[in-house]
């Protein structure tokens, strides 16, 4: 069973449909027991950091998530919140990955919105995904390049478009919205 962490993040429906298209059952839940027992956990996210952290704290999910042992996939804001701090609302994250999330400079249009290519792909999360494949992104903040970086993209500067530490994975792009290439990433995550 796949647990999608329920904390009122945006557009969960599309993620559920994407999993359904892969023939996988998922539950949207904030129940500790169900999350702990799930084979895989997806930590989605869209919207503002402060609001998201507030909702996580209300349910104690901010304590639970870092302790999870099964593969966890943070998507978009979900990936950013795996980090220690974000410039968005000057908010503290979950601190699993030691880094600070930054805002894109105004040299480029913010948010970055649309399809950008991803490269230097590492780990089995990207098995079968070709270098420079396009993924759908929509974000104003980015994770800088780190030891944990497993894919990069470029929007005015190079940044981490995917990260990996222990059982935690994060992707800045929306696999559920990135057509067949995104589906491959989701499928790979489910195989971990």
């Amino acid at each position: 069973m796949i647990a999608i962490i329920d904390y009122n993040a945006g557009n969960i429906r599309s993620l559920q449909f994407a999993l359904e298209r892969l023939g996988v059952k998922s539950i949207l839940t904030s129940d500790f027991d169900k999350i702990i027992k799930a084979d895989k956990v997806i930590f989605p996210g869209q919207g503002a950091a402060q609001n998201a952290m507030l909702k996580l704290k209300q349910n104690g999910l901010d304590d639970l998530i870092p302790q999870l042992k099964q593969p966890v996939l943070g998507i978009c804001l979900g990936m950013q919140l795996l980090c220690e701090h974000t410039e968005e609302d000057d908010e503290k994250g979950l601190g699993i990955i030691k880094c600070r999330v930054k805002r894109f400079s105004d040299k480029a249009k913010v948010p970055q919105m649309g399809w950008n290519n991803i490269s230097k792909l590492q780990t089995s999360l990207f098995e079968g995904v070709k270098e420079n494949e396009y993924m759908y992104l929509v974000h104003s903040y980015y994770v800088p390049l780190l030891n944990e970086t497993i894919a990069i993209s470029n929007y005015g500067l190079e940044y981490s478009v995917a990260v990996h530490k222990n059982n935690f994975y994060g992707v800045q792009f929306h696999p559920e919205k990135s057509s067949s290439a995104g589906q491959v990433v989701l499928k790979n995550f489910l195989k971990l």
Binding site: G10, N11, Q46, G47, A48, N51, P111, M113, V138, H139, S140
Partner: peptide, 8 residues
Amino acid sequence: SKKFGSQC
């Protein structure tokens, strides 16, 4: 934009 995020 505050409630759902600028991106949407």
